[in-house]
Design a protein around this nucleic acid. Structure first.
Lengths: 207, 207
DNA sequence: ACCCGTCAGCGACAATTGTCACAAAGAAGC
DNA sequence: GCTTCTTTGTGACAATTGTCGCTGACGGGT
């Protein structure tokens, strides 16, 4: 599952640079990479696997924002680094994940000399904006059953499988609702023929 | 109320450039500057007044995202321009507003030669990220009474007054709820001594 | 097999929000 | 004054979501 940095459309010289100063990090599924308040010292570039980005409130309640996958980087890291501010989100490995950590100092310098890095940074901003708007849409316009269904589809797509391995409690936490509500609505989705529920696992009936 | 571009921390040469190519535009309160699907041909820099940025779903339901005020620019414009994509949000003048429209073509060029422009663009991204996260917080973690109360405080702060001129229906539209709910919760806030309601106008009892 | 901890299912009820119907109050014109 | 339109108020009810209590199912270990 190892992806190397070469496959990410960077120019050869930049690839060289990244490999020189970047630190490869491997995360097992479920490991927390970043939490609100943590200082951000490096920019992660995801090589394989995926990160789940969550927003927390003061009491620790959470809500899902978006996933980062291969080739993505965290726009929050970019803004936090630039402003020298702590993280405002939580990042958790959704699967086993590999990423390259690039020190903050390079951000600006590379932007000025590597066009592909500049493109990369701007695309990151743009994609994360879209992702955040999608999160807003979900919160503002969709009911909980629809939100669960979409989350399941996204999770399944990440793995390219029709199974999602998660407990009802975990899904409830990601959507800032309660376990009972998730159970109830999963039953409803099952009744509609969209899924089948198993212990620790949900099967999506796509197509 | 006219603010000129000089007060925005740009270097003199850039100010000159902006004045040369920028188009000054004045909007009356309530006028729509941008709607979802519209092509974005220029980047607006707000000189005075404020813009209300809203997200819409397919059926036209809306939810408030954030306000832009003096010195701000629309990060959506930046991303949309860069990717040559239509707007994904709606922008409406909250008050009488003046803005400078800068043609897209300059975005990149100025970034490479004017440090203050680069800073400006990155700060815009950063601020709008924070604003969007605040919008997510509001949607995910707060009940409707709290959301109304916060919206009122923001609106009052924009004008630096203790009155907000709006009907219950308008507030309902901005929060994607119904007029009756707004009426009900405003009565509740009034009972708590936080506001006084009048026709077309709400008085905030701050301090 | 049995125990035990985790996970899921379910019924009852509460809280919040959404919807409908209708009335009253205020503003503006005649 | 009267009429009309807009805005606000309110009661009743529905839908959705949140919470509590309890039950049973499943799986891993012994």
């Amino acid at each position: 599952m190892t992806t190397n940095i070469q496959s990410l459309h960077f120019e050869p010289k930049l690839v060289e640079e990244i490999e020189k100063v970047g630190i490869l990090k491997k995360l097992e599924a479920g490991v927390e990479l970043m939490r609100p308040g943590m200082p951000v010292r490096s920019i992660p570039i995801i090589l394989s696997g995926s990160l789940r980005i969550m927003r927390q409130d003061e009491e620790g309640k959470e809500t899902f924002l978006y996933f980062l996958t291969k080739g993505d980087t965290c726009a929050m890291s970019l803004t936090c680094c630039a402003a020298n501010r702590p993280s405002s989100v939580r990042a958790v490995a959704e699967d086993a994940t590999e990423l390259m950590l690039v020190p903050v100092e390079k951000l600006d310098y590379w932007m000025s000399i590597f066009p592909s890095w500049k493109t990369f940074v701007f695309q990151a901003y743009q994609r994360r904006f879209e992702d955040l708007l999608e999160a807003v849409d979900s919160l503002a316009f969709q009911r909980m059953d629809e939100r669960i269904w979409r989350l399941l589809k996204k999770k399944a797509a990440l793995q390219e499988k029709r199974y999602v391995y998660a407990t009802h409690q975990e899904l409830a936490d990601e959507l800032n609702t309660s376990r009972e509500v998730v159970t109830r609505l999963l039953k409803k989705l099952e009744g509609m023929g969209k899924i089948k529920t198993h212990r620790n696992r949900i099967e999506l009936m796509l197509k």
